[in-house]
């Protein structure tokens, strides 16, 4: 619980930081770094190493019944911060994972089409890792969770507007028994 609280604090700080960057605009390159340093200090951010990857073919789409649990998690533009509205979904996933200890998941991270393809490939990975990290704080073992980024290469919805983009900035789930 304490862990979860600190995660919430961090997320709030993160959102606060992002909001600040958003409104203040250009002047503050050095302040950006300062804020980032503060954010770094606020979060105790440790490596959570990824474990050996299972063969890709073992991962399947969740069954129709499980689709209701393993819902896509959506992100803000250029952000990998878990939004408050998705915490409930992640809590349900975590409790399902805890009652199904033999299942492992592959979290796929995606971006919308805007911006650098390369940067988006790394951002997609960070979104998947951010979901994984959140589930770790909810008590799911890290070695059951793998990540895969497609960057902007596999949009869920085609279209060149926010209606499409908001569904493409996502993390989705595959399961392996």
């Amino acid at each position: 619980m304490k862990k979860a609280n600190s995660v919430v604090t961090c997320l709030v700080l993160g959102i606060f930081a992002v909001t600040c960057f958003g409104c203040a605009g250009r002047k503050k390159s050095s302040r950006d770094d300062m804020l980032a340093a503060e954010r770094d200090a606020a979060l105790s951010f440790e490596d959570i190493a990824l474990s050996e990857l299972p063969d890709m073919s073992r991962f399947k789409e969740p069954s129709p019944a499980l689709k209701g649990i393993f819902k896509d998690i959506y992100f803000q533009y250029d952000s990998s911060v878990i939004q408050e509205e998705h915490r409930n979904t992640l809590e349900k996933i975590a409790s399902w994972m805890k009652s199904h200890p033999r299942t492992s998941i592959l979290v796929e991270g995606h971006c919308d089409e805007r911006g650098s393809n390369e940067y988006n490939l790394a951002l997609g990975e960070q979104r998947a890792l951010s979901v994984r990290r959140y589930l770790v704080t909810l008590g799911v073992s890290s070695n059951r969770m793998h990540t895969l980024s497609y960057g902007e290469e596999k949009p869920a919805v085609s279209g060149h507007n926010e209606e499409a983009w908001k569904f493409n900035r996502r993390a989705s789930f595959l399961l392996a028994e």
Binding site: A17, V18, S29, D32, D33, D78, S116
Partner: peptide
Amino acid sequence: FVSDRGGSPQ
């Protein structure tokens, strides 16, 4: 390289 450690990619 690119990093978004300052809140945006730079």
